[in-house]
Design a binder for these strands. Structure first.
Lengths: 338, 338
DNA sequence: AGTCTATTTGTTCACGATCACAGAACAAGG
DNA sequence: CCTTGTTCTGTGATCGTGAACAAATAGACT
């Protein structure tokens, strides 16, 4: 590689094509009023030199970086990773680049820091994959400086949100178990501070109340299979438990394992429902009844919303709740007869 | 938001601080030869105006975008997602931004397209998370234009690579089963065209040959639990099968399910080993013996390699093979006595 | 005091694109 | 032939920063 060989610039193309740099610019930006023969000559020169416009120069003068930022938390998990993927896909087709800043913790200082990083880079808008309440409140303040949308979080904030309707999903899951004849449904919740935790717990509680069923105490996990396992050991010790709704599939996996080890049959003795429908859920032992959410779709919708906001297009809706879908498998069955 | 209110620029800071813009620039870039009192005045002005340097202008003049690109495939899966996360983390601490381009298919046209997108954005280097042979050959051609490293792929290409030592991992897994007294070990391989598939299959074969064990025919899956399930149904039909090495944990999960449904006890009748140690593996039924790879570490190392290449620092090593680690759990046990 | 050097600050230009405006070419109409 | 309008193309300024160079200031030493 020759270090002195600088990539060709617009002026080089202009020289080769025998026109001015302005004409090259016009061709590149699809402007009208360029004679066809001239355009062809310019395009030929571009190909010949393998010319690529300098995005920094363009960004400088147009004040548009063509870049969107994504603040993401827990991006190794299936949900966040899928949302990121959906966002990237939608951004590409809208003509934007995507720059990511992932968080290791969700305190508002970290969020602030990540957003600052993205702003320093000159992003035109930011999508936040940050389901914790603290994060949402932190980003609320930023929306005046740069357009922001939240993905997968609840609906309490001032920024536009695209999210799964967690509450109705949880409600459906719980009602499914009640309909099977269970007198009540126990709940393994997510960690406190997460919007999903609250919303799913609320849905569960509403379903119980609506059916006049007793509301047992909640056990909290941290979304991991390990925590589900621990909750499961506790629940297995209580012979009155016949139905459990887990706030996500990973915890349900741990729960299944704990129940199995404790000699409880599923769904013979205890029925279990999860939430998410991760791709492995169909291969658990037994296959898991769960609530499916389409994370990728969520990301796509969020990005479309963000682009709308940027281009000033009609503010279609600011809080989009996507309804989830129940997936029935073999981990649920009628309540055991006593 | 006032549309006319343009963000402050260096000249504004200079005016407030009563210096020239060049002095502001010096303060920002930590140059020497700035009187302390002047520096303080400039910093105060920066804070007062909430000034942020314009990255496009800086990129234009320095010819450095401070941005690295990541081409990623299958980024919703645990492995790729973790690598991406590791890359982002390392990039941040090296002072780079990260721009992602994810692929939906791995033909060389798509790869080329993704790389072009990143180049248009002016990235200084590219990390490719693309474990398929076809992709690797495609990126080989690019390394002359912009520095490239590959993550998690095999070692056949000319570009620098950071990867798990798949072969030795597979060899260890197979030997573990042989040591337990199994006469031979069956293998559920990944889909053709993946470097992991080849390397793990080679390791398995080597271990068998070294032990003088017969080499049974290979069954191929596509990494999904579903495909493992199907392979499992086939293997369960053969009473001679007592040990199976699956090329990844997801397929092992499906396999476990199939064996269970077919009435085979694990590990009583059949022992199973996976590969990856996904976070759920400890909660399978039974918990899965597997080969752990630290994807995040892989990403971090890859990025460091890339940065080394950019800064022209000593080419430490170009092919880094990270040794994996066996994790023994309850899915493996001694061969059944006949 | 005068000279020499080291430190500190300012001036001018360049990066590579777009934008606003001006000028050339061409056709149509009087 | 001249005017008018439309289409096509070129010139110069501009975005906000860093680099090279020049100038001013201060301190040290003869």
């Amino acid at each position: 590689m020759d270090p002195d060989a600088r990539p060709p610039v617009m002026a080089d193309v202009a020289r080769v094509a025998g026109v001015s740099h302005q004409t090259v610019s016009r061709v590149l930006n699809g402007a009208s009023h360029v004679r066809e023969e001239t355009r062809d000559r310019v395009l030929a020169a571009i190909r010949q030199l393998d010319y690529r416009p300098n995005s920094a120069a363009r960004a400088l003068v147009t004040r548009r970086s063509q870049t969107l930022g994504v603040v993401s938390f827990g991006s190794v998990l299936y949900g966040p990773a899928s949302m990121l993927d959906g966002i990237e896909q939608a951004a590409r087709s809208a003509g934007y680049f995507v720059s990511v800043a992932s968080l290791r913790s969700l305190d508002s200082r970290s969020v602030q820091e990540a957003v600052d990083r993205l702003r320093d880079q000159g992003v035109e808008g930011i999508a936040v994959i940050a389901p914790q309440t603290s994060a949402v409140s932190a980003i609320g303040k930023l929306s005046t400086v740069v357009p922001v949308v939240a993905v997968g979080s609840g609906s309490e904030s001032r920024v536009p949100v695209v999210a799964i309707d967690n509450e109705s999903g949880a409600l459906a899951a719980t009602r499914h178990l009640l309909d099977l004849g269970h007198t009540t449904v126990h709940h393994v919740a997510g960690p406190p501070g997460w919007l999903e935790t609250t919303a799913r717990q609320d849905g569960w509680r509403k379903a119980l109340k609506a059916a006049g069923a007793p509301v047992p105490p909640v056990r909290s996990g941290d979304w991991s299979a390990r925590s589900g396992y621990e909750a499961g050991l506790g629940l297995a010790a209580d012979p009155a438990v016949t139905a459990v709704f887990c706030a996500n599939d990973h915890m349900a996996l741990g729960l299944l394992r704990a129940l199995h080890e404790s000699g409880r049959a599923i769904p013979g003795d205890i029925s279990v429902v999860g939430f998410d429908d991760i791709s492995e859920a169909a291969y658990f032992s037994p296959p898991l009844t769960t609530v499916r959410q389409d994370f990728g779709e969520l990301g796509r919708r969020a990005l479309e919303l963000l682009v709308e906001e940027l281009t000033g297009a009609g503010h279609s809706r600011h809080h989009i709740l996507v309804p989830p879908e129940m997936v029935l498998r073999r981990s649920t069955g009628p309540a055991p007869s006593r």
